[in-house]
Nucleic acid binder design. Structure first.
Lengths: 105, 105
DNA sequence: TGACATTATGTCCAATCTGGCATAGGTTGT
DNA sequence: ACAACCTATGCCAGATTGGACATAATGTCA
């Protein structure tokens, strides 16, 4: 595990702790985090490409600015289900989302 | 919406009701269901390819037979997060999962 | 048919999630 | 510096989820 990735996870709000404790994040769980982070970034890129604020996007998709912020931050309180639902609502296709996931990690 | 798809959703436990009520399932929500169903089928195919029972898989990934059954059935109580976590635990790669999602629908 | 394995369905409840609110922090333009 | 806008963070109540258990339904083989 590269320490840069550990910093990424920590800064995103994941309880990582020291190296020992870090091992409790199984491979599967880390892969899930990678997927979540990839979808988060995609959402942010797409919103910025449309040049709209988090608040505007939130209103359009029936959520709140704070939750959009957490989605884009890859916050642990955000599920992949919510991210994918949001991306679909924002117009993404299964092919695009699949592509993002295929390149996660 | 093809009535065959409506039957599929109903038989999978989704509250669909009549046509009017059915419209409440937005495009985004239906896309999500498609993703869920695709991942469900992939999980079942992979388990059968390994020739192991739901109970055996459940034990290996730290879940229960009933939940594995619900995962494979695309039950509404199963999230995409759980399906992806299960697939990762079973050895799938992001590329494989992304491919499945890209072809959902 | 009977015995056994496998899968499906229903329910429960602790844990997790989500929209919303409040507010803090940050950025931009004047 | 100020105002206006945008983003981040903390929190909460109501809703959803997931492992577990029981049990029903289905499948398989002799």
């Amino acid at each position: 595990m590269k320490s840069s990735k550990k910093r990424d996870l920590e800064s995103a709000g994941w309880k990582v702790g020291d190296t020992q404790e870090f091992l409790e994040l199984s491979d599967a769980e880390m892969a899930l985090v990678d997927v979540r982070v990839s979808l988060s970034r995609d959402l942010r890129h797409r919103r910025r490409a449309k040049k709209i604020s988090q608040a505007t996007l939130a209103k359009r998709i029936g959520s709140s600015q704070s939750r959009v912020a957490k989605m884009e931050a890859g916050d642990p309180s955000v599920t992949i289900d919510l991210l994918m639902k949001t991306l679909f609502r924002a117009g993404s296709t299964p092919a695009e989302i699949g592509q993002v996931i295929a390149q996660a990690g």
